[in-house]
Design a protein around this nucleic acid. Structure first.
Lengths: 194, 194
DNA sequence: GTCTATATGTTGATAGAC
DNA sequence: GTCTATCAACATATAGAC
């Protein structure tokens, strides 16, 4: 685990960046405040100067990811046009946000529900999924998507595919567009040759 | 968390079943031996009579999942016929095994790599993925699958979709066939109406 | 804003009786 | 096979100096 020793003093944001990296490497429960202090290059008690404790670091990190995801649903292209186009916009933009906020979204997707903060994060994730499931249902009703796959099930599998990207994507090797294209191709038209 | 108090004494297998349930509820790192002893209804030291420690419980559980998955690749239908049919067989059977061994596979898919046992599990998972990626590549070469999505990327997204099932599936609500059909439909033919 | 020192609880694991 | 009792190590968090 590489150490960070910035010249300038830490702010909550810069400390959060280091923290999230370590949380993703070792898992939230597997990370001790000692681990964080070593990675940040400051003492444990200095961390407590910036935040109230370990759980607040988690809350700030997953909150950032959730805000970015919900922002997608407010975009014009997600609220106007044929349902299937709105859905494709949300799918592509979710991939983009996932990649631009990779460490924060990665942490969000690994949250399990042990603490109050984790349960709050799970609840907001469910809200997001429900909003997308409604969009998919509308596209089925409009005859734009096949009706032999239940919308709720399809939404889950679709986001399973998207969310799994955090498990292997590393910046620099491939652009966000390439990944978004691949997801959209498979999700809407499938792998089979025409 | 429901408690288990079996009449008969524990064996490694029955203890493992309880353990895996708790690991999946609280996460491996988030589970203490005290948690396990409470869930099993026996004392901590009684657990140490059956296994050497917490990490051995993890090794036994993920080993069971890995053996089941690798078994699929040895099945006749995975080794004969057109590549695309072999791939579809592996996809459907992976869904089935995932559901029949749900708690064990769930635990396997959440392993991160902190300990030697976890790294061993990650390595075997990579082996499995590579074997399937080769199958997918063969199907592309044979002209059975579209060639504008890189095989390695397609494999990752495909397994992202399949593996995500452990996050929401609960026995009793839907049969394994229904889920396997939905996965195969989306993966090979896509969501769009024809 | 950072430090050293320490309080206080929890952890994985062991010893030895029944 | 199970128990009670216990340990050494490590956890989160705090106190107070600079």
């Amino acid at each position: 685990m590489a150490e960070n020793t910035p010249r300038t003093a830490y702010t909550v944001d810069t400390l959060l960046a280091v923290t999230v990296r370590v949380f993703n490497e070792r898992g939230y429960d597997g990370t001790s405040m000692e681990d964080l202090s070593r990675a940040a290059g400051i003492s444990k008690s200095s961390i407590y100067h910036h935040v109230r404790g370990k759980e607040e670091l988690l809350r700030l990190a997953v909150g950032r990811a959730l805000d970015a995801l919900f922002g997608i649903l407010e975009e014009p292209a997600a609220e106007t046009g044929p349902p299937v186009d709105r859905l494709e916009h949300v799918v592509r933009r979710t991939v983009e946000v996932l990649l631009s906020e990779l460490p924060y979204v990665t942490l969000l997707l690994r949250v399990r529900g042990n603490t109050a903060t984790e349960q709050w994060a799970l609840e907001r994730r469910r809200d997001f999924d429900h909003r997308v499931a409604e969009l998919l249902r509308a596209a089925v009703t409009a005859g734009e998507l096949r009706s032999d796959v239940e919308p709720r099930l399809a939404t889950r599998l679709l986001f399973g595919m998207i969310n799994s990207i955090v498990e292997w994507y590393r910046p620099g090797t491939r652009g966000a567009d390439g990944v978004a294209d691949a997801v959209a191709h498979i999700a809407f038209d499938g792998l089979r040759a025409r």
